[in-house]
Every structure is written in C-alpha cells, then in structure tokens.
Design a protein around this nucleic acid. Structure first.
Lengths: 354, 354
DNA sequence: TTTAAAAAAGTGTTCGAGCACGCAATCGAA
DNA sequence: TTCGATTGCGTGCTCGAACACTTTTTTAAA
C-alpha cells in the first residue's frame, strides 16, 4: 500500500504548469504571472499541500552550527545534566546537519564568562544557547548578538528586558509555592520554616528571590502565617566550618525550626548537618538530582527534591533552536518545564530521561 | 559549510567496490564474497557509518497501518488521554507513512472487546497497540496475532505470560509504595489507612492488587505497622447511593480513618464524599488528571494525584511500534513511565505535554 | 576447452523538494 | 527591425538509500 501524499508535481499538473513554477510560488522566489500564482495558491489550499519535510531536509544539506555558552560541569556538578541534554539533542539532530560547539566558562568567574561570550561572537554561530547566570555581564552581549542576527535561547535563569528566541526553565515563583505546599503537608505542629540560599550570590540571582516569594506567598495565601514563621537566610561558607556554625546559631535563635527549603541544588549541605546532629524531625526540601542529593534522598534525610530537569533544559534548548532554524516553526517565548516532585520511590524514572 | 556524513558511496570507494555491494552487505541480501564483506564491515565500523534515516524514509514510501484496540473514552474519560496520545504520535509520524485505525470497545463489556479484537485480525495491521483490560478474554488473541506475525504493544495493564513487543505503563508496585510514602508524610498521628478499589472488577485487574502490595509493603518496610493500620476494600456502586453508605459503615468501624488511597482514577468519588461530610482531615491520594479529579485537587480535597500519563502511554506505544517497524530499532521489553506526583501547584505542566 | 549456470559486483532509477540553468516570449530603446 | 534586457516558465540534476536490473567473473559440468 502506498502513501497518499500531495507533491509539488501534483500541484503543477493540476495547474497545468511545471514544478519549477509551483516552487517559485511556494518560496516567493522569482517571477510568476499573477493569474498563474493565484491558480496555484488555490490548488495548494484545495489539496492541502504540506511540504515533505523528509525530502526537504534531504535536499538542503546545509550545516547548522550552534553554540552553547554554559558553565563548567567539573566545578559544579549541576551542570553535568545540561551538557548531557545538549549531547542528546545533537545526536538526534545530527542528521539535519546540527553541530554544537560548547563554550565553557567558570561559574564563579565573571571574566571567564566575558571571555567566552566574546569568543562566541567571533564564531558567528547560526544559533546560541546560553545559561545567563551573570546577569549584568551578559546584558551587553545580548545586544551584540541581536545585531549580528544570532538567535539565542536562554535557559536555567530567566532574565527580563532582553528578547531571546525563547526562555526554557522553570517558573520560579510556582516552584517556591510547590515547595511550600509539600513542606506544609508534612508539618504537624506550629514552628519555624527556613528558606536557605546556600552559597549563591543572591544579588545576581533574581530567580532565587522569586522562589522565596512564591514560597512565602503560599503560606500567606493559605492563612498559615500565624502557625508557621517563615524566615530566610543566605548561607555562605567558602571555608568548611561555616555552615555548621551558622545553622547552630540559627537553631538557637529559632528552637522550633521544623523545616528547611533550600533554593538551589545545595540541599545536601544542609542534609549533612541534619544527619550529623540527628535532627530527623526537620523536614527538608531542595532541588536537583545531583549525586549527593540522591544519597540523602535515599537515606530519608531529604524528604523531597524538585527536579529542575537540567538535562531537559539543554535538550529542549537545542531543539527550540532547531525548530526555529531548520523546521521554521513558531517558537513560544517561554517554555516552562514541569515541576517534577521527586522522592526515593520515583527517583529512578527521572535519572535517565524518556 | 557542509555536513560531513558518511555515505554508502564513501564506504564503497574506500573498499574499492560499488555501492550495490555495500548495500548487500548492509542488508544481508544477495551474495558477497567473504573477504569483500569483511573488508566492508571493517570500513563501516571504522568510519562509524550510520544510515541516513532521512534518505531512507524518503525512499521507502510504504504505508504502515497500525491498529489501536482501546476503550471508548465517552464511557470512561480516563481513556480520552490515550486517544490524544495516539493522535499526537500519528501526526508526527504521518510523514513516515504511519496511519492508525482505532478499534474502540466498551470497557464494561467483554463481548464488545472480543468483537473488536476479531476485527483487528481481519484487518491485518502492521502493528497493534492494545490496552488489555480484559485479561482472560485477551489471551487467545495474543496467540493469534503472534501467529499472524503482528507485533503488539501492551499499555496501561501489565500482563504476564504473553510476549508483546513491549509493555508501556507504570510499575504498579512502586506506584503503590509511592502513594504510601506521600500519605505517610502527611500523617501526624496513628490511625487507619484505607486502600480503596472503586468500581473495578478486581479479579480481572492484577495491577490493582500489585499497587496494594506496594502500598502495604511500604508501611511494613518502614516499621509503621504498629502506628498505622492498613485496610483495603472494594467499593462498587452500580447505583448512586452505594458509595456513601459503604464509607459511612467503614468509618463507624474505623473511627480513626486518617487517609484513603484510591487505586484507580475514581478518587473524585471519594472526594465528593469527604467534601459532603466536611472531613477535611482525611488525606486522599489517587490517580490521573481527569476533570473531576482536577477539581477536587484544586479545592484541596484530594491532596496528591499520581499521574499515570495515559497520554504518554498512547504516544509512546505508537512510537515503539514505529521504532520497531520503521526505524528497526531495538525495543526494550518494558518501558516504565515516570510516577509523576501532581498537586495543585504543578498540575498545569502535566496537562498539555511537552 | 567449451559452455551454461551460479555467484559476485556494478549500474541506474526512484522517492520529493530545492535550485541552477536555460529557453522562449515580451518589452523598450536605438 | 534588431539587439539586449527582463519576465515567465520548464528541465534536469542533486541529496542518500533502496532495489531492480545488467554485466562480469567464477565455478562446475560436458
């Protein structure tokens, strides 16, 4: 049995002309007499012609060089997953001529970001995927890339006042609310709830603030402000000892500490503290399935993790670029990834995706 | 810039032979001298040749008629989602010549299933996707389809002792454990926990039993048997009034009822009862994002839903068939879908997928 | 040694879209 | 009316794999 597909040739025959002419109509290329053009357009509509993407991409054998500007995974293992997502997407799209060049910067060093961002401009890629964790430093480059006509997709960190092709990541506000909902479900009696920003430059990380807002607003919205006191704290410790002391102090100040919400992937640091001090009653929710977090999840020290799906962010980021560049599809300005709730029992399914 | 793709012609040139010969080696067709074959195989490996799927499917313009044997969504809205998944997959794969014929049976009537299953045989599809909710009635057909060489993929209900191309769905045991974990997190004081099988012929539904096992084993494994008494009950009500009376009786017997786990998509029935009787303290977990469940989730009567991703089941089922038939990929015997935990705060992301 | 059959290897067409090229008709200016 | 330029339109090659078909080589029997 054969497929019933409408081809350019079919249209040409029905319009009593040649496929070359139909082709020119389809691509607004070259010169076609008005009456012929309209006859052809009518027939295209009538037969409901859709170009055969397969034949199309077989023919147009051009290469698409995409660039990815993302942090070094060896310095923060959170970034391993996006790398994997990139590679997965590249594998799938290699058939279509997609090649990705990675520009890897140090997530703790603004100058290294700037150096790599400059390199990207010199390469003139066809598209760019970027994790803009340095807001201020990144701004001028967005301008530059826009002028060069390089479409860029942001992921991981949402940024205002720039015009990317698309943002891919989570709705930080909702994410905070979700964390609140989960913790509240496990809280039995009144107490203090801590929002912890661990080892993060909060001034350059608007999305962490947004998470905190979502978290606080959940307790407000549910009229739980009387029952639970929400406090927040930045916990930074370049040196080893720092965290324990800071949490000790905090517990002295708030002896009824009942739950901790870590706004980034550093929940394992708090988990280590809880385990060391046998604080089994303090509920703990954090982000991301990095190794240390998984261990504490399996031990039951971390109760739930919210998966930001960093692999998916890389994967979909590349796919959005491909959809735009290769398949000429409309791209939504924002693609929110699901807020996956992870626990020991369903962890497996989120580790190796699809 | 051009793509660097290894073609059959490249292999032929390097092996000092013609593309026809390489083709015969690749497809184990026709006769090739042993030394030439080995030389070619070596070069294929060396150059890391991967056939160009695009060119491949452009050439082989055959149609693939797939059949889907699934219940009528107008009788049980759970089945709407698989239908949507089917259609989504068909849309994506139409370019590759995939066409799906639906054989829709009444999920409450074995004879209707048998009639439709017979029809499938007469149609001789190239592949089959089936929701085998009638275990006993389905068995002889598996035999028949196997003899006819029709590969079939099971979804929704896992069945032993048959040899499908693949099973797609959830790990029921884990699913039960996950439900237990969630409920336990929200339980503050000792009490009774009910496993409710609502309006389901339990004798034909092994997977619900498996869910219950997983649920019970969680409490056993965590040494919580003393604290929480787990009971189970089949709740059937062909007539309207039935459910209320049965739950009233149950509450008389177990006044400390603290949580209910509904093993199928009928949590909304229990939710209606809880709401009517203002039992805000009884925790409720169920399955699936059908309309009524969503409403009670948003109201807070249902605390969490576990998403069985019925849309994904249909979608991936068709894709597995396509991977097997069109792309000749290896198919894993089981594809477990994630156990997604859904709450009011992250519901949106699971409604319209990807 | 010849010859037919069988095996091995090579050639050429096809799929649908893209695009370069070239032919024919029309137009305008000298 | 002749020449070049412009417009309108058709032809034919290309992409990589599949497969039918043809040609060449080998093998075995006469």
């Amino acid at each position: 049995m054969k497929k019933k597909i409408v081809r350019i040739k079919d249209i040409a025959e029905k319009a009593q002309t040649s496929k070359g002419t139909v082709d020119r109509v389809l691509h607004n290329r070259g010169r076609v007499a008005d009456d012929v053009r309209e006859r052809i357009l009518a027939i295209i509509k009538e037969l409901n012609y859709e170009p055969n993407l397969i034949a199309q991409s077989l023919k147009s054998q051009r290469a698409f060089n995409l660039a990815a500007l993302i942090p070094d995974p060896s310095l923060d293992s959170y970034w391993e997953a996006p790398h994997n997502g990139l590679e997965k997407a590249e594998k799938e799209l290699r058939q279509y001529g997609v090649h990705i060049t990675k520009f890897i910067f140090n997530s703790h060093s603004e100058p290294s970001f700037i150096a790599k961002a400059k390199e990207v401009g010199r390469e003139h890629p066809d598209g760019l995927l970027i994790a803009p964790i340095f807001y201020k430093e990144a701004l001028p480059f967005f301008q530059e890339w826009a002028e060069m006509g390089i479409p860029y997709v942001l992921f991981n960190t949402q940024i205002e006042h720039v015009n990317p092709l698309c943002y891919i990541g989570q709705d930080s506000y909702r994410s905070g609310s979700l964390a609140a909902k989960i913790l509240r479900f496990g809280l039995h009696s009144p107490g203090t709830v801590l929002v912890a920003h661990v080892n993060e430059d909060i001034s350059n990380s608007a999305h962490l603030i947004t998470k905190e807002e979502g978290f606080r607003d959940y307790f407000k919205g549910e009229q739980l402000e009387e029952t639970f006191k929400v406090i927040s704290k930045e916990i930074n410790f370049p040196e080893e000892e720092g965290l324990d002391k800071q949490l000790d102090d905090l517990r002295k100040q708030y002896p009824d500490l009942a739950a901790v919400y870590v706004t980034n992937s550093k929940a394992f640091e708090v988990a280590a503290y809880l385990e060391k001090n046998a604080l089994t009653d303090i509920k703990l929710v954090g982000y991301d399935l990095i190794g240390p977090n998984q261990q504490y999840l399996n031990k039951g020290v971390i109760d739930f993790l919210i998966n930001q799906n960093p692999l998916g962010q890389g994967y979909w980021g590349i796919h959005q670029l491909a959809n735009h560049l290769i398949f000429k599809k409309e791209i939504p300005a924002i693609k929110f990834l699901p807020l996956d709730i992870i626990t020991k029992e369903n962890l497996d399914y989120y580790l190796d995706p699809q």
